[in-house]
């Protein structure tokens, strides 16, 4: 058989195998849409016709109406306005701190996994020591002393304290990708370390990273809620966040039980946002999972 025949035979042999993944599904799209609306509102809040969150524009404790979509709180501030502006703080903390954690922990984790050896041992022992320490206590301690609290400070504290966790996840992902033969193959071709990390490892680690990023943002938003509950977030009269709105509502609800929108709306928004993040994160992971593509 001549070489030409081989070529023809092989060409016939390639069976069409277009990528067929399970469809993304309407529910995922709803979640994505919901996340997008929140982000858009947060970004565009100053430009949108949203009532000022700190202005006492109306009577306290008003019910839902066309003027006040979700009613007003016990100081007469518009709940919808406060929620919209509050998303800036909540999302800011979530995304900002994760940006720090991934910016530092991600590259370090991948580098440690690729290089192995002494570098990995030293970095991993430092990181794992920090991991062993309950970070929530550290965050609470630092934030109680580092006053006045601002968005930036909260982002930095949560961001830094999340580095070890991100490091561990990214290192594990890179370790499993790095043990594959294609990394060896790239070395054999003469690829240098940087090229291997960016071309071979990163694309295979990115899906894990992305879905963990979404989980991280969700966790941090919830964490901000906890901090606000403890009075360790930004003061509610400076800027509202979903967390400190819930904390505020809890206190006023004791006095005025019929003021339920005060607690229902921020709780519902926070809850739905975190749920959507987690759901999309999980869906992304399975969507990008190469092994699930093949039968």
């Amino acid at each position: 058989m001549t070489n030409n025949e081989v070529v023809i035979n092989a060409a016939e042999s390639v069976v069409e195998q277009p990528e067929k993944k399970a469809p993304i599904g309407i529910f995922t799209w709803i979640c994505v849409g919901w996340l997008a609306i929140n982000v858009l509102v947060a970004v565009l809040a100053p430009l949108l016709p949203i009532p000022d969150p700190n202005e006492m524009i109306s009577m306290p404790g008003m019910g839902m109406s066309f003027d006040h979509l979700m009613g007003t709180d016990d100081l007469g501030r518009d709940i919808f306005g406060r929620l919209a502006w509050g998303s800036r703080i909540s999302l800011g903390v979530g995304i900002g701190s994760m940006a720090i954690a991934f910016g530092v922990g991600g590259p370090l984790g991948m580098l440690a996994a690729y290089r192995r050896g002494k570098m990995d041992v030293i970095m991993s022992s430092v990181m794992f020591t920090f991991l062993a320490f309950p970070s929530i206590i550290a965050i609470i301690a630092v934030l109680s002393f580092w006053t006045p609290r601002s968005l930036g400070k909260i982002i930095i504290v949560i961001g830094i304290s999340s580095i070890p966790l991100v490091y561990r996840v990214m290192r594990a992902a890179a370790l499993s990708a790095g043990s594959k033969e294609y990394v060896t193959a790239a070395r054999v071709q003469g690829a240098r370390d940087r090229r291997i990390i960016f071309r071979e490892l990163l694309p295979n680690v990115a899906p894990t990273g992305l879905s963990f990023l979404l989980f991280g943002v969700a966790t941090v938003i919830a964490l901000e809620g906890v901090l606000a509950f403890l009075g360790l977030s930004i003061a509610p009269d400076i800027a509202p966040s979903w967390g400190n709105m819930i904390n505020d509502a809890r206190q006023s609800l004791n006095n005025v039980p019929q003021n339920w929108p005060l607690i229902i709306f921020p709780s519902a928004i926070l809850c739905l946002f975190i749920l959507a993040l987690n759901f999309v994160g999980d869906r992304l992971r399975s969507y990008f999972d190469v092994t699930e593509v093949k039968l």
Binding site: Y182, G190, A191, R195, E200, V290
Partner: peptide
């Protein structure tokens, strides 16, 4: 040059065939 035993694992699943084949050319 070397070719490995596991054909699936020796190719990066997230890269295009053209780029995989061109990898040595790009490296050098």
């Amino acid at each position: 040059q070397m070719i490995f035993q596991d054909p699936i694992s020796s190719l990066n699943p997230r890269r295009r065939v053209k780029d995989i084949v061109a990898e040595p050319l790009d490296c050098w």
